[in-house]
Amino acid sequence: MTGIVKWFNADKGFGFITPDDGSKDVFVHFSAIQNDGYKSLDEGQKVSFTIESGAKGPAAGNVTSL
């Protein structure tokens, strides 16, 4: 699925993605970002991701920028 990064705190390594389908915002951890180098996201960035079952509920996985 796709969405827009609502916010991401690079110091803490997590944030939230707002899915394009209008569903509830999804937690994203830096370890789910699939790019080389520094793993961070920018507010407003368009991303593709999967929904994984995290310890505290749904979380984004396999996050790639579009």
Rank of each mutant, 00 (worst) to 15 (best):
S31Y: 05
D36P: 13
I4M: 09
S23G: 14
D25R: 05
K39G: 07
K56V: 08
W7Y: 08
T18G: 05
G37A: 09
G44C: 08
W7A: 03
V5M: 03
T64M: 13
F49I: 02
T50I: 12
K56D: 08
W7E: 02
N35W: 11
D11R: 15
N62G: 08
H29E: 04
G13M: 04
V28C: 06
G37I: 09
G13V: 01
K12L: 12
A10D: 07
I17G: 00
F30R: 13
M1I: 10
K12Q: 09
G37K: 10
M1S: 08
S40E: 06
A59D: 04
K56F: 14
A60S: 03
V26P: 00
F27T: 02
N9D: 11
Q45V: 09
G61K: 15
S23V: 05
A55M: 12
G13C: 04
E43G: 14
I33Y: 04
D42Q: 14
L66Y: 08
K56R: 13
F27S: 02
K56Q: 11
G37P: 09
E43K: 15
K6F: 04
F27K: 02
G54L: 08
N9S: 12
V28I: 07
W7F: 09
I17L: 07
G61I: 14
N35A: 14
V5R: 00
T64E: 10
D36N: 12
G57C: 07
G54D: 11
F27H: 02
D20G: 06
P58N: 10
S40M: 12
I17K: 00
W7V: 04
T18K: 14
Y38K: 13
A59K: 14
I33C: 04
K46N: 07
V47E: 00
G57I: 05
A55Q: 12
S53T: 13
G13Y: 02
S31C: 08
V63G: 01
S23Q: 08
G57S: 08
G61F: 14
G22N: 08
F8R: 01
S40A: 11
S31K: 09
T50L: 08
S40W: 14
F30K: 10
T50Q: 09
Q34P: 04
G54M: 10
D25M: 07
M1D: 04
G13A: 03
S40T: 14
I33S: 03
T64N: 11
T2G: 04
S31N: 07
T2C: 08
T2F: 09
M1E: 05
V28E: 00
G37H: 09
D36H: 11
Y38C: 15
P58G: 06
K46G: 07
D20N: 08
V26E: 00
V47L: 03
T2P: 04
F8Y: 12
W7T: 03
D21L: 06
I33P: 02
A55G: 11
